[in-house]
Each structure stands twice: as structure tokens, then as C-alpha cells.
Design a protein around this nucleic acid. Sequence first.
DNA 1: CGATATCTTGAGGAATCTCAATACTAGTGG
DNA 2: CCACTAGTATTGAGATTCCTCAAGATATCG
Lengths: 246, 246
Amino acid sequence: MPRYNIVPNAVPRVDREGGVSPCAACPIREIAVCGALQSDELGALAEILDGIAVEAGSAIFYEGDPARHVFNVTTGAVRLSRLLPDGRRQITGFLFPGDFLGLAYDETYTYTAEPIERSALCRFPRASFETLLDGHPRMERRLLGLASNELATAQDQMVLLGRKTAREKLASFLITLSRRAERRGQGANPVHVPMTRTDIADYLGLTIETVSRTFTALRKAGLIEQLPDHAVRLTDSEDLLAIAGD
Amino acid sequence: MPRYNIVPNAVPRVDREGGVSPCAACPIREIAVCGALQSDELGALAEILDGIAVEAGSAIFYEGDPARHVFNVTTGAVRLSRLLPDGRRQITGFLFPGDFLGLAYDETYTYTAEPIERSALCRFPRASFETLLDGHPRMERRLLGLASNELATAQDQMVLLGRKTAREKLASFLITLSRRAERRGQGANPVHVPMTRTDIADYLGLTIETVSRTFTALRKAGLIEQLPDHAVRLTDSEDLLAIAGD
DNA sequence: CGATATCTTGAGGAATCTCAATACTAGTGG
DNA sequence: CCACTAGTATTGAGATTCCTCAAGATATCG
């Protein structure tokens, strides 16, 4: 049973025959791995790609599934998580448009990937993707850089989880979200926080109650404002940054 | 001021002229990135490599240093760590013979690398190493696999830091150490734990007192024995594994 | 507009931390 | 070879942060 639907038109396929790749018009290409390719190479990408659309509540893949594809998020937001046998969950990351997903040394995924809102992704069969890499060393190098980057981000998160207080964790989280939105060219200050308290808690190694109380504390301290529609204004980014600790 | 001494003979250089690479005799080559090269390609590796020796108490590089080299641990053990402005420390990993070190997307290292005991490493100038990768795609692919692996390990550690109890953290730690020793072909059961309580605490997101108390608790529960010389016998690996949670 | 999920707030409890004293270990010099 | 020292580890008692359990408030969606 498929975990999502393949939606051919999630990515425009026009002109594939004519030699113009849908990727050429992709708004996030430059910030994604695909940006490593020249325009005349994009056809090769489009040839192995399927556009998929996923709704919140479904899954892209589960921990333990055979790792048959790699993905690129084009719209929406995705959470990556792992479970302990008794159900405790740790979210290891949130992905946004442009982010790459599915690198696996193993033959199976080591984490679950689920959209937290309606999202679209480009899906590449892993084998074809690897063949593509063989012919495009620039792209492979980019992927390596990307992995290094993710590794550095993972280390940030370890510092957060192992050594920061609840207040520091939430401050870091909000600032990081804001920075990432900025890099994608979206509004960085009232920052959009699409995830639930449960997701934030499982990401920061806290309970939902502590997350809620800490939001209240930051608000009462005049550091943030909670706006409608899951938006948060960073009233005092400087202080917030000082609290976040790096 | 150099942070360590270059010790030409830390890696045997005999026969470089004669075309036989010191790497050919390297006992950890197969488990390291270098294993991706054929024997007739090893000369290229040796040409750009320096052997370095470092003592506990020194550093290989610090967070923020320009990332001019990449390394491979050949003997000993190395800790990677990051600091918060107020001095709180998080150790993000321990490296053992065969482990690769120094991947950096940035121009500077994002973490500090220090030996926790007398160690030897192969050091490669980053630029030369990247040039080498250009000519040896198999090695680059291996490096990518390695990075994926590290990413999965980092996720394990996030689960540990965010969602495990002190008892579970220590059990996981001991089992992981044991497994890694085994993969290197060393004794897996009385497992050698070369790091101090402080290092273990900073790795597991605990205090040294809690680490110490938890060691005592595991010992009293009959799960481990503490032997002389920083060795720990896993008396009941099965139960320990169940406690570790994955 | 009701139903359901999500979020907030409160009170009490538990795990871990802090501070402090003592014990152990390894290395050094007599 | 032993005594001394400095670093490292253990143990205890009390403090603190965060968690658990529970109730009420708010938001979301059909």
C-alpha cells in the first residue's frame, strides 16, 4: 500500500519532449542540490523524477522501509523522527522547500518522514539518482557539502538537547526557524511556526506542557509576541539570540 | 603556534620512492575511507599525507580554526566537542582508528578535536584531498556513504540526548562502545572505556555525578562489572541492550 | 455550531543537578 | 619502594528544573 499518491502534475511536465526540463522553472532549484547542474543538464534530472503530493497525517516513508528513493522538498514542511520501542519520539529535523531527504547508507531508512502540512516533493529512484551522480561529479560534490552541512546542524542540535535549558532551547528553535525562512527568501520576522506543540516538544526534548509554559514565559518577558495563524514575532531578536547561546 | 607536532615517522614512509605506499601496510585501511582505493592507487594518497602524533591534553584543531586539513585516526581516541559561550560543553562524538575527521562545508571547523589519549592520525591538506577525490570517484562515493552513516549516528545521539534517561543513556553508550570495538576487531566484551567521567557526562548530557551514580547502579544491578584499567565487563548484554532501547 | 484536537495553566512529584566531603588512582620525587 | 600530590571518581544531602497528571480554555474543521 503506497504511503502517498504520485501526482504527475505536482511538478509540471510540460515540454519534457521538447527538451525543456520542468526543473528549469523550479523556484527552489538554486537552493537545492539541483542547483549544481547546468541548465542543459536538467533534462537528465527531470527524466528520473516524479512529483508527489502528501497531506498532513500521511507519511512519506517509515523508519525501516526499504530506501528506494531520495527526495527534494518543494513546498510545505516535513518532519523526520525516530521512535523508541515504548513510543517515545525524537524529531531529528524539520525540512522545508529546497531540503534534500533520503540519504541512506543502509538499505533501509533509519527514520520516518512525514509532512506536517500539505507538501510536495520531487522523488528520485535511488539507483537512478546514483547513476546520475556518476555522470555529474559537481552534483555529487554538492551532495557531500550538503551532508557536511547537515552534520554541523546535527551537532548544533546535540548541543541544544544535551546542554541547553528549556528557555534556551525554545529561543534557539525560533531563531533557527527564522534564519532558515530568511535563507529561503520568506518572511523571517513574524516567523511561521507550522508545527504543533507536540512536534516542538519532541524536537527539543521537552514535554508539550514545558513548551507551552516556555512560550508564555518568553512572551511575558517581552521577547516574542504570539500572533494568529501560528506566527511568532521576535520582538527582541538580540536578547533572544543571547539566550539561545550561539 | 602549531597545535601538534608533525611526526614524519608516525606513518612509515619507507619505499615512497620505490612506489610502495605506506598505506599498503596500514592495518586500518580497509575500515577507513582509504579502503575505497585499489592498491595501485595508494601512492596518490601517501603523496599528500603527513603522519601526526598527538598527546592527551593537546588539540588537533579548535572550533573556528580555518579548516585546512582532513584527518584519519590511525591509533588512539579523539573527542569532538562544541562549547556554549558560558563554557558548557557538548561532546558530539568519539573517534577511533579508521574514523575520518574534518569534513567541513564551511571554511572553518565547527567543532574542536582533541585526543583523549596518545593518538596518531593521517593528515591531508583539504585542497589536495579534494583534488584526489576528483580523480577517484569511488573514494568520493565512499565518503558520501560515510557521511550518511555519521548522520544516522548523529540521529541516534539525538534520540539518546532528547528522550533517554540517565540509565538508558549509559547503557546505550557502553553497548555502542562495545560494538564499535568489535567492528575494529578489538575486544568487545570487557570494553575499554578510555574517557573520563567528565567526557562521558558531556557526551551524554549529564553531570559527572550522575554518570558515576549510574555506573554504580548498573553495577549493583549486576549488569556490568568495573574492572581495572578503565575496562567494563558487560555482564548481561541482553538486559543492557533492552535498557538501551535500540 | 458542535465536536475534536490542540493549547494553556496549575499542583505535586521525580529525575537530575549543585554543592560539599571523602575516596581512589596515577604519576613524581625523595 | 614509599609518600606526596594532583587529578579523578564516588557518595551524600538538599535544591531545581522539568515532568506527570488533571482541568479548563482555545482553536479548527466539518
